[in-house]
Computed example of a mutant assay.
Amino acid sequence: MPDATDTEGLTVGQVSARLDVTVRALHHWDEIGLARPSLRTAAGYRLYTAGDLERLHRIVVYREIGLGLDKIRAVLDDPTADVPGALRAQRTQVAERIDRLQQLSAGLDRMIDAHERGLLLTIEQQAAIFGPEWNPDWLTEARQRYGDTTQWRQYAERSASRGPEDWQVIADAMAGVDRALGEAMDAGVAPGSPEAHHIVERHREVFASYFPLTREMQVCLGRSYEADPAFAAHYDGIRPGLATWFRQSIDASARHHGIDPDTATWQ
């Protein structure tokens, strides 16, 4: 404790420095009667005695553990106050706050991990959910190519909150779209027909599980589905020529919604 005597009081500035309390806080506590200096200089300046400093020290301690000023006043001035009970209640609140902070920390760790890895799944879980065609290296390539984009950030933020069951639901929905595409081709559905428009819209809605997908962006994806060897192999593996049929259907749907697929950009 700082040393002061009744005859040699400390100024507000000295108390502020010794107890690491702002001058503004000391003035406020004086104004509300929580901690008033016992002495004044001839010029009217506040001077704090050893007894004043003892009270201030207790106020600082109680404030640091989270007690409000009204509760501190009661603890200090009410002889009937249940001090241990008040401290136990505060300890419970502190423990709850620590638990919330630990959960927040764990959430931040998952968010960081998702931004860096894309999927918070083991290799075995990825293979079980996405099938034998899945290549875990695709995530690294996607991070390198798209890591600075808005879409990667949106994808990572969603990924951080998903577990294996959530990804299984999404994988099953995408597989359902693939089946619908193959069945539409088998049935002779023409690009630009209402049936084709429905499947294209279904694809856009399911794909939005990764990040919001505009129709312009979907057109850009359709080009990749046809031109990229890996994508083309996937769709043509479902039905020969499906990659081109799907791209044509996406383009026709875009035109139906007033979008020129020839000039569409990733926006």
Rank of each mutant, 00 (worst) to 15 (best):
P2Y: 02
A4D: 05
E8C: 01
T11H: 06
G13Q: 05
Q14E: 10
Q14K: 11
V15W: 04
S16K: 01
R18M: 05
R18C: 02
D20V: 03
D30F: 04
E31Y: 09
A35W: 01
R36Y: 00
P37N: 01
S38L: 12
R40D: 02
Y45A: 07
R46N: 03
L47E: 07
Y48W: 06
T49P: 04
A50D: 07
A50E: 07
E54K: 13
R58S: 11
V60P: 03
E64I: 11
D70E: 12
V75P: 02
L76N: 13
P79R: 02
P79G: 02
L87P: 13
Q93K: 08
A95N: 15
A95Y: 14
E96M: 04
D99H: 15
R100H: 13
L101H: 14
Q103R: 14
S105D: 15
S105M: 15
R110I: 09
I112S: 12
I112C: 05
D113Q: 14
D113G: 06
H115S: 12
E116V: 00
L119Q: 07
L119T: 08
L120E: 04
L120V: 05
L121F: 01
T122D: 14
I123M: 14
E124W: 03
E124S: 04
Q125N: 08
Q126F: 05
A127D: 07
A127S: 08
I129M: 01
F130V: 00
G131N: 10
G131V: 03
G131K: 13
E133L: 14
W134E: 09
W134S: 06
N135V: 06
P136S: 10
D137G: 10
D137T: 13
A142V: 11
A142G: 09
R143I: 07
R143G: 13
Y146S: 08
T149C: 13
Q151E: 11
Q151W: 11
Y155I: 08
A160S: 15
A160V: 09
P164I: 13
P164G: 09
E165S: 14
Q168L: 14
I170F: 11
A171R: 14
A173M: 09
A173G: 10
V177D: 05
R179Q: 15
L181H: 09
G182C: 08
A184W: 04
D186G: 13
A187D: 07
G192D: 03
P194Q: 06
P194C: 07
A196G: 05
A196V: 00
H197C: 03
H198G: 10
F207R: 07
F207W: 11
A208V: 08
S209A: 11
Y210Q: 01
V219N: 08
V219R: 14
C220S: 10
A227P: 00
A227G: 00
D228N: 10
A230L: 14
H234C: 01
Y235G: 01
D236L: 00
G237D: 00
I238E: 02
I238D: 03
R239D: 07
T244D: 04
R247S: 02
R247P: 10
R247Q: 03
I250L: 09
I250M: 07
I250K: 01
D251W: 09
D251V: 02
S253Y: 15
A254V: 00
H256C: 06
H256G: 03
G258Q: 05
I259H: 15
P261A: 08
D262L: 05
